[in-house]
């Protein structure tokens, strides 16, 4: 069994009207079944309101499913006794870099998680050193987070999660508020963690370019998982993605249009080099 396993997950949001009677319920995720193996790089795609953020909040127990069960590292998230263990195993990075940094100095923020877990002081320092090293932010350890760029703040947030020694890290649109450079920085840090520290990564995003490197992709729409497979399998279905209001990477789209125009190339081209190679043969 994988590190994260969901079976027939469902979740309802309740909307209360002004009189406070009869809440309206709204199904945010419905019948989601997943099985994620340790060490994988997973991407979850979907446009706004597809339920991807709701799913992310389930993965570390911030929300508890209304239906179905979710296991993180063999622990049921609806079991309140295990909740802190689950949150330690599955760390979470949020979208807004400003609203998730608690410390007034970078190194203190990274130490926040371990402090909460009751780790001894010496061990906290070691963890802080290691995690700052892993995301390449050692030089900024004594800085105030307010003076960092968005990408740097997100790297600090990732270091803060890494210091808790999670098995799995969930990133909920970590690059949505960043400029292209910041986006590259953050993705590089995430990829390094996945490859070198062997942390399972679940990246939730609506940028197609970020998905290309994933091992496995889930596409969500209206609370359902509508497509899944390797990036190549997903991106060879350009029409279906477009019907879900998702953009495909430009190269893939170009290759698709060329194919429609009669050029003999395969579907699911992901990178520029690949397209160049295919065209030059």
């Amino acid at each position: 069994m994988g590190i994260i396993k969901a079976s027939k997950l469902g979740f309802d949001y309740f909307k209360y009207n002004e009189e406070g009677e009869e809440p309206e319920s709204y199904r945010a995720i419905d019948d989601v079944t997943l099985d994620i193996q340790a060490g994988q790089f997973i991407a979850v795609l979907g446009h706004n309101g597809s339920g991807k953020s709701t799913l992310a909040k389930h993965l570390n127990g911030l929300l508890v499913p209304s239906e179905g069960t979710l296991w993180v590292d063999n622990m049921d998230t609806s079991d309140e006794e295990d909740i802190w263990k689950i949150r330690q195993r599955a760390g979470m990075v949020f979208q807004n870099p400003d609203n998730q940094i608690i410390g007034t100095v970078v190194e203190e923020d990274v130490g926040f998680g371990p402090e909460n877990m009751g780790v001894s002081t010496e061990d906290i320092w070691k963890r802080v050193d290691d995690s700052l090293e892993a995301v390449g932010m050692v030089a900024y350890r004594h800085h105030s987070p307010n003076k960092l760029s968005g990408g740097q703040k997100q790297r600090v947030a990732i270091a803060g999660v890494m210091a808790m020694h999670p098995k799995c890290i969930i990133l909920d649109e970590p690059t949505a508020m960043l400029d292209p450079n910041g986006r590259k920085e953050v993705l590089k840090a995430v990829r390094t963690l996945n490859e070198q520290e062997n942390v399972t990564v679940i990246l939730i995003t609506h940028y197609m370019e970020e998905v290309v490197l994933a091992d496995h992709v889930f596409v969500m729409d209206q609370g359902h998982v509508v497509m899944q497979g390797t990036p190549r399998e997903i991106f060879s279905q350009v029409e279906k993605l477009q019907s879900l209001r998702l953009d495909v990477p430009q190269v893939t789209l170009l290759a698709h249009e060329l194919k429609l125009a009669g050029v003999d190339i395969p579907e699911g081209i992901l990178t520029t080099e690949e397209l160049v190679n295919v065209l030059c043969q």
């Binding site: 609203n99 926040f112 877990m117």
Partner: peptide
């Protein structure tokens, strides 16, 4: 912001 921060703190095991 307060709401986001509370979520982020909980996610990092603050209790």
């Amino acid at each position: 912001r307060a709401n986001d921060l509370a979520l982020a703190m909980e996610a990092r095991c603050y209790h």
